[in-house]
Simulated assay, not measured.
Amino acid sequence: MCAFHEWDGRRTVWIGLGVVIAAAIGLALFTYVGTLLFAIFLYYATRSLYGLLDRHVDHPNVTAVVTILLVVLPMVVVVGYTGIVALRELDQVLASSGLESYRSALDPYLTMAREGNVDRFRAALTSDTGRSITSVLRQGLPSVIERLSSVAGFVFAVLARFFLMVTLLFYLLRDDWKLRRWFTRSVDHDEEIVSFLEAVDDDLETVFVGNLAVVGVATVIAAGTYVGLNLLASGGPVVGTPVLLAFLIGIGTLIPAVGMKIVYVPYGLYLLVLAVATSTPLWQAIAFFALSFTVVDTVPDFFARSFLSSRSGVHMGLVLLGYFLGTLAFGWYGLFLGPIVVVFAVHFAHEVFPALASAFLSE
Rank of each mutant, 00 (worst) to 15 (best):
Met260Asn: 09
Gly235Val: 01
Val238Asn: 09
Pro242Tyr: 06
Tyr264Val: 01
Leu269Phe: 06
Gly252Cys: 02
Gly236Gln: 12
Pro242Arg: 08
Gly240Arg: 08
Ala257Gly: 02
Tyr267Ser: 00
Gly268Ser: 07
Leu245Gln: 04
Val263Gly: 01
Tyr270Met: 01
Leu232His: 05
Pro256Gly: 14
Leu248Tyr: 09
Pro256Lys: 05
Pro256Val: 09
Gly235Leu: 11
Tyr264Ser: 06
Phe247Asn: 12
Ala257Pro: 00
Ile249Leu: 10
Pro237Asn: 10
Val243His: 12
Tyr270His: 09
Pro242Asp: 06
Phe247Trp: 13
Ala233Lys: 12
Met260Ala: 13
Val239Trp: 10
Tyr264Glu: 03
Leu269Asp: 02
Ile249Met: 15
Ala246Trp: 02
Pro242Leu: 14
Ile255Gln: 13
Pro256Asn: 07
Leu254Ala: 04
Gly236Arg: 13
Pro237Lys: 13
Leu231Asn: 08
Ile249Asp: 07
Leu244His: 12
Gly235Arg: 05
Ala233Arg: 10
Leu269Ser: 03
Leu244Ile: 15
Val263Asp: 02
Pro266Tyr: 14
Val239Ile: 10
Gly240Ser: 15
Ile262Pro: 02
Pro237Asp: 07
Met260Leu: 13
Ile249Gly: 10
Thr253Asn: 13
Ala257Met: 09
Leu269His: 01
Met260Gln: 15
Ala257His: 04
Gly236Thr: 06
Gly252Lys: 10
Leu244Cys: 08
Gly252Thr: 03
Ala257Gln: 10
Val239Arg: 11
Gly259His: 03
Ile255Val: 14
Thr241Glu: 11
Leu244Ala: 08
Ile255Phe: 07
Phe247Arg: 00
Pro256Trp: 06
Thr253Gly: 00
Val258Phe: 05
Leu248Gln: 06
Gly236Ser: 10
Ala257Asp: 03
Phe247Leu: 06
Pro242Ala: 08
Lys261Glu: 06
Thr253Ala: 02
Met260Thr: 15
Gly268Lys: 02
Leu244Ser: 09
Val265Asp: 04
Gly236Glu: 12
Gly235Ala: 11
Pro256Cys: 07
Tyr267Cys: 02
Met260Asp: 07
Pro237His: 08
Gly268Glu: 04
Gly268Trp: 01
Ile251Tyr: 12
Val258Ala: 10
Gly235Trp: 00
Leu245Lys: 04
Leu254Ser: 08
Pro242Thr: 07
Leu245Pro: 14
Val258Asn: 01
Lys261Ala: 14
Gly259Cys: 02
Ile251Leu: 07
Leu248Lys: 04
Val258His: 00
Val265Thr: 09
Pro242Met: 13
Pro237Trp: 15
Val258Gly: 03
Lys261Trp: 12
Val238Ser: 12
Ile251His: 05
Lys261Ser: 15
Val239Ser: 05
Gly259Met: 03
Thr241Leu: 13
Pro256Arg: 06
Ile251Gly: 15
Gly268Ile: 10
Gly259Phe: 04
Gly240Ala: 12
Pro237Tyr: 10
Val263His: 00
Pro237Thr: 07
Thr241Arg: 14
Ile255Pro: 02
Tyr264Thr: 11
Ile262Asp: 00
Ala246His: 03
Val265Asn: 05
Ile251Ser: 04
Leu245Trp: 05
Tyr267Lys: 00
Pro242Val: 12
